[in-house]
Amino acid sequence: MGLKGKLTAQIEMKAGGDVFHELLSDTPHQIPNMSPTTIQGCDLHEGEWGTVGSIYFWKFTHDGKEKVAKDVVEAIDKEKRSVKFKMIEGDLLELYKVYKVGFHVETNGGIDLVSWTIEYEKLNDEVEEPLTLLGVLIKLSKDIESHHLKA
């Protein structure tokens, strides 16, 4: 098996892709209120919210354990409704040399679809592919959708 890989998942977003994109690109610090069992915190470490080059500090739960990540915002595209983060510090870098998470929203037949992508490079062959981390992103999406559908 190779050390580099890419995982993707695509989920229908009934609450609307624009809401999802605006939340993750401009106000991610609101996410812990919508998905407290997944994301416990998102703090601005450097820069400004919603700005490429800014650094966010995340507290999240993965496999029942609290973890942290410091991510730099690599790209935000309002037209394509996409955002890309690259982890620069955190628990996952004990397993992965490179760990990037991105998403984009596309509309197909009037249905908004959120596509998550994890790009990674494992430190060695013993490290598993981050399938459970993709599951965390899917749960996060469903929590955000549920929050917005209730509102």
Results as ranks from 00 to 15, higher is better:
Asp43Arg: 12
Asp18Gly: 13
Pro32Thr: 07
Ser35Pro: 12
Leu3Arg: 01
Thr8Ile: 04
Val73Gln: 04
Lys84Cys: 10
Lys6Asp: 01
Lys6Pro: 01
Lys65Thr: 10
Phe57Ile: 13
Lys80Ser: 10
Cys42Leu: 12
Lys80Ile: 03
Gly64Cys: 10
Glu22Val: 08
Lys6Gly: 00
Met34Tyr: 08
Val72Pro: 03
Ile55Tyr: 10
Lys86Phe: 00
Lys59Met: 11
Ser82Leu: 07
Ile39Thr: 10
Asp71Pro: 03
Thr51Pro: 02
Ala75Val: 02
Lys4Cys: 05
Asp26His: 14
Thr27Met: 08
Thr51Asp: 10
Pro32Tyr: 05
Ala69His: 08
Gly47Met: 14
Ser54Asp: 01
Thr37Leu: 08
Lys65Tyr: 07
Gly16Arg: 07
Glu74Ala: 09
Glu12Val: 13
Thr8Leu: 00
Leu24His: 13
Thr61Cys: 13
Gln40Cys: 08
Glu48Asn: 14
Asn33Leu: 06
Glu66Leu: 09
Trp49Tyr: 15
Gly53Pro: 02
Leu44Asn: 01
Glu48Pro: 07
Lys4Asn: 05
Lys14Ser: 13
Glu22Arg: 11
His29Leu: 01
Ala75Gln: 11
Gln30Tyr: 09
Thr38Phe: 07
His62Cys: 09
Ile76Arg: 08
Gln40Pro: 05
Pro28Ser: 07
Leu44Glu: 02
Gln40Asn: 14
Gly5Asp: 00
Ala75Arg: 12
Ser54Phe: 06
Val68Asp: 11
His21Trp: 15
Gly16Lys: 06
Met13Lys: 05
Ser54Ile: 03
His45Glu: 15
Trp58Asp: 01
Lys70Gly: 03
Val73Gly: 00
His21Leu: 04
Met34Ile: 06
Gly64Ala: 13
Ala75Thr: 03
Gln40Leu: 14
Lys86Glu: 10
Lys4Tyr: 00
Lys65Ser: 13
Asp18Glu: 15
Phe60Lys: 02
Ala15Phe: 09
Pro36Met: 09
Ala69Ser: 15
Cys42Ala: 15
His62Asp: 10
Lys70Asn: 05
Gly47His: 13
Lys86Ile: 05
His45Tyr: 11
Lys59Asp: 12
Leu7Ser: 00
Met13Asn: 02
Gly64Pro: 11
Ser54Cys: 01
Ala9Thr: 05
Arg81Asp: 05
Lys14Ile: 05
His62Glu: 14
Ile55His: 10
Leu3Gln: 01
Gln10Trp: 00
Met34Ala: 09
Glu79Thr: 12
Glu12His: 07
Phe20Gly: 03
Ile11Tyr: 02
Lys84Arg: 10
Lys6Phe: 02
Gln30Asn: 14
Glu79Leu: 03
Ile11Val: 15
Ile55Ser: 02
Leu23Ile: 14
Phe60Thr: 01
Ser82Asn: 07
Phe57Tyr: 12
